[in-house]
Simulated assay, not measured.
Amino acid sequence: MQLTLADKLWSGATTNLVKQAALVIGGSLLLAASAHVKVPFWPVPMTMQTFVVLMIGATLGRNLALATVAAYLVEGAAGLPFFAAGGGIAILAGPTAGYLIGFLVAAGLVGHLANRGMGRSVASAVPIFIAGDVAIFLCGVAWLSTLIGFEAAIVNGLVPFLLAEVVKIALACTLLPWAWKRA
């Protein structure tokens, strides 16, 4: 397992536990903030969350990325206004629930691939970010289809987001290798 970008950027006297706690808390707060950078759509709003989830996985690695997204989900379920629609356990049964679970899957997947050294160049960043995005939308559309039907889930929960996801992936594929070169 290789060093993550977070390890490379934050080395020094801070204890590992303090560093990990700070990264998890900071990451969950960043993910919460990204939920509120949104374009309202029905039944699922377009937010910057997918971009942040992918970057969390790529910079923190699997274990910390999973801890970060899990913390975010617990914080939102506990009632903090961390989700795009606010907070509370009921959101984990609503139209966005599959996407939220997909965030956890994607963070773990992208983090695992980053732990294996992927994402340090544009060529190796493209497949990990596409894989992460596919994981999010597979989970999201699968759950949404149980609520509104498969065809409606594709039309309302995938198609409107495709162009924005291409832009977010391009941004992530530019930023991550750039950060590695400067680390």
Rank of each mutant, 00 (worst) to 15 (best):
N16W: 09
A90W: 12
L3R: 15
P40N: 10
A70N: 04
L176H: 08
L158S: 06
P81R: 00
W180L: 08
A13N: 14
A33K: 03
A125H: 06
E75R: 00
A93Y: 15
L144W: 05
I130R: 05
V155D: 14
Q2H: 14
L104T: 00
A13M: 09
K38N: 08
G157N: 03
T47E: 02
L158H: 03
A71Q: 15
P160A: 01
P177L: 08
V155S: 10
A65H: 04
L5T: 03
N63M: 07
H112K: 14
F161H: 03
P127D: 11
E75I: 07
A13L: 12
R120W: 14
V166R: 07
G76R: 01
A58R: 02
N156I: 03
S34L: 08
G88C: 10
A107N: 00
S34W: 03
V44S: 09
G111Q: 02
L162E: 03
G119H: 07
G86I: 03
G57L: 01
L144A: 01
T4I: 03
L31H: 06
A22T: 13
A71N: 13
L147Y: 12
A183G: 15
A71L: 15
L104E: 03
I56V: 12
P40K: 09
L60N: 02
A107C: 09
Y99A: 04
P127K: 08
A22W: 06
V74H: 04
L5V: 09
F41Y: 12
G61E: 05
I101T: 12
L163W: 12
G102R: 07
T96I: 02
L60T: 05
V167G: 09
A21P: 05
V39L: 15
V159Y: 07
L17A: 13
K168F: 08
